[in-house]
Simulated assay, not measured.
Amino acid sequence: MKILKKILLVLLVAFLLIQFYRPEKNSAEYRDVVSFETETKPTPEIKTILENNCYDCHSNRTEYPWYAEIAPVSFVIADHVEEGNEHFNVSKWDSYSLKKKDHKLEELIEEVEEGEMPENGYALVHGKMTQEEKEALLNWAKKARENYAVGDDIQ
């Protein structure tokens, strides 16, 4: 029993100490999605879907929930946001070539169709997209891809 108490004490101390180390946050001045929305022309309904399901991990500004301040959750969230931005960042839309924009929208379609996006953990906390929302998002993305059908090489 003594060894169990020592292990629990060490774990408690480690948990408390890790609270003092914070991962870097994705917190630009504002969420710059104007270029993306101007080009892809989402309806107000689609904008709401994007805001509720995509922009936290796929833009330069994340709205962090209260529990993002508690390690180790803070590290998991930081990792998801960083990975999301590596794959697709609407705040960098202007820097993408036409072909890359087409490819990013194609990936969005594939990820939503396969149920990979939004991630299960995000959907668990923030709520899942309804089937109607998924269909609306997919229809919008497919229509938006038409603008990029002929483009240059992926950069």
Rank of each mutant, 00 (worst) to 15 (best):
M1C: 07
K2W: 09
K2T: 12
K2D: 11
I3F: 09
L4I: 14
K5N: 12
K6R: 07
I7K: 09
I7Q: 13
I7R: 08
L8K: 03
L8P: 05
L9G: 12
L11S: 13
V13L: 13
A14Q: 01
Q19W: 06
Y21D: 00
P23V: 12
E24C: 00
S27E: 14
A28L: 03
Y30R: 15
R31G: 03
V33S: 09
V33A: 14
V34A: 10
S35W: 04
F36Y: 08
F36G: 06
E37P: 03
E37G: 10
T38F: 02
K41L: 08
T43G: 03
K47G: 13
K47A: 05
K47W: 05
K47F: 10
K47M: 11
T48S: 14
I49L: 09
L50H: 09
N52S: 10
N53F: 06
N53L: 04
C54V: 11
Y55P: 05
Y55Q: 10
D56Q: 12
D56N: 15
C57Q: 04
C57S: 02
H58V: 00
S59D: 07
S59K: 05
N60D: 10
R61N: 08
E63L: 10
Y64H: 05
P65N: 08
A68F: 01
E69P: 01
I70W: 15
I70G: 02
P72C: 00
P72E: 00
V73P: 03
V76Q: 09
I77Y: 02
A78Y: 01
A78E: 08
A78R: 04
A78Q: 04
A78K: 05
D79T: 15
D79Q: 04
D79V: 12
H80P: 00
E82L: 07
G84M: 01
N85I: 03
E86G: 13
E86D: 15
E86V: 08
H87D: 10
F88G: 10
F88E: 12
F88R: 11
N89K: 07
V90N: 09
S91N: 03
S91K: 00
K92M: 07
K92E: 15
K92Q: 11
W93V: 15
D94G: 06
S95D: 05
S95N: 08
S97F: 03
L98P: 02
K99P: 09
K99S: 15
K100Q: 11
K101I: 11
H103L: 11
K104C: 05
K104G: 01
L105E: 06
L105A: 02
E106S: 08
E107F: 06
E107P: 00
I109A: 08
E110T: 14
E111C: 07
E113H: 00
E114H: 03
G115S: 04
E116C: 04
E116S: 14
P118E: 02
E119D: 12
E119W: 03
G121P: 03
G121T: 01
A123H: 04
L124M: 12
L124N: 14
H126Q: 13
M129Y: 00
T130M: 04
T130S: 15
Q131S: 06
E135H: 14
E135P: 10
L137S: 06
L137G: 11
L138V: 10
A141F: 00
K142A: 13
K143R: 13
K143G: 05
A144H: 02
E146I: 06
Y148N: 04
A149S: 13
A149N: 10
D153H: 11
Q155R: 13
Q155D: 13
